[in-house]
């Protein structure tokens, strides 16, 4: 376990500057934004209602939740983009800089080595980025609310209500990240494996394969396969992050109504979490995990044979 943790630490040592940027940039952007007089905020939930209000006329608790959600989401999106941009290169990183021989001369198994890289870049670092974003959001909220409404307004927020909301919201997004990665693991890990073998051609080859699958293979088969599979993966991954149908039927007449509903948000998010967890009890999820595991196996095989 110590060795696995050290291998994870190695990922942090090697990529920490990039990830610190990913973690800090959204907070900095939001801080800058918070200094301006943001004109309005739209609260739109599943098309049932739209409330438009001046941001700083909203209840303070709602402003805090808003900043938290916006900053956290921005950080999360940026982290996901960073992962997608970095993922293909990770598979051949050590071969490219010739350090593969050094790493393979150490008493660590190939499974541990690949596992630490995959775990860190697909889950831990995006998860840390998300948490950094949520923490940074509190700073943003402090600055925004203090500068427009005074420090007292920030201090007198209903913290007993806000803390569970922020914590459960963060936990829900972390769970969403885990499940989304699991649903998308066939694409993510097979792309990494392709990159290990095909180098810079991997991404074009994967994209071309998917296009051929959707545009040609599906038409040849009596029943389309590729597109429905991709659609299912994308839908489940998005649902894992936020199952919007959990919020169906909600109706708010005013920002105060939204604020009044905030104490119920943790319970709602927990129910939503239970639902997305329930979605994993399906053959499709098992197949996704198996194909993802095959991709992982290919990465291990490539590392074993790496020259």
């Amino acid at each position: 376990m110590d060795r696995f943790f050290t291998l994870m630490k190695r990922e942090w040592m090697q990529h920490r500057i990039g990830w610190l940027v990913v973690m800090a940039v959204p907070t900095v952007l939001m801080l800058v934004l918070s200094l301006f007089d943001v004109r309005g905020l739209k609260v739109k939930i599943d098309g049932d209602a739209t409330v438009v209000s001046e941001l700083y006329q909203l209840p303070v608790a709602l402003q805090t939740v808003g900043w938290t959600f916006a900053t956290g989401l921005l950080t999360f999106v940026l982290a996901c983009l960073a992962v997608l941009a970095q993922l293909p290169g990770l598979a051949r990183r050590d071969v490219q800089d010739r350090s593969i021989e050094f790493w393979r001369s150490l008493p660590t198994s190939h499974v541990q080595s690949v596992g630490a890289t995959v775990l860190m870049h697909l889950l831990v670092l995006p998860g840390l980025a998300l948490m950094a974003g949520v923490l940074g959001a509190q700073l943003v909220a402090l600055v925004a609310i203090s500068s427009h409404l005074g420090l007292g307004a920030w201090l007198t927020q209903p913290w007993w209500m806000l803390l569970p909301v922020v914590l459960v919201m963060t936990a829900r997004m972390l769970l969403g990240l885990l499940l989304a990665v699991a649903w998308l693991s066939p694409l993510l890990l097979l792309t990494m494996a392709a990159s290990a073998w095909l180098k810079r051609w991997a991404v074009p080859v994967v994209v071309a394969t998917l296009v051929v699958g959707v545009e040609w293979l599906d038409r040849q088969l009596p029943l389309a396969v590729v597109k429905p599979v991709l659609d299912r993966m994308a839908t489940e991954a998005l649902n894992a992050l936020l199952a919007t149908h959990s919020f169906k039927g909600m109706h708010f007449d005013s920002p105060e109504g939204v604020t009044a509903a905030l104490p119920d948000l943790p319970a709602l998010l927990l129910r939503d979490a239970a639902q997305v967890l329930g979605n994993t009890a399906s053959p499709a999820f098992v197949v996704a995990l198996l194909v993802g595991a095959a991709g992982f196996g290919l990465l291990v095989l490539h590392r074993m044979r790496a020259e």
């Binding site: 040592m13 050590d94 010739r98 350090s99 021989e101 790493w103 001369s105």
Partner: peptide
């Protein structure tokens, strides 16, 4: 067993 497999293969970033 300690093993040095080649020349100058330590990771450059470290």
């Amino acid at each position: 067993l300690a093993y040095i497999p080649d020349v100058a293969i330590l990771p450059g970033w470290a």
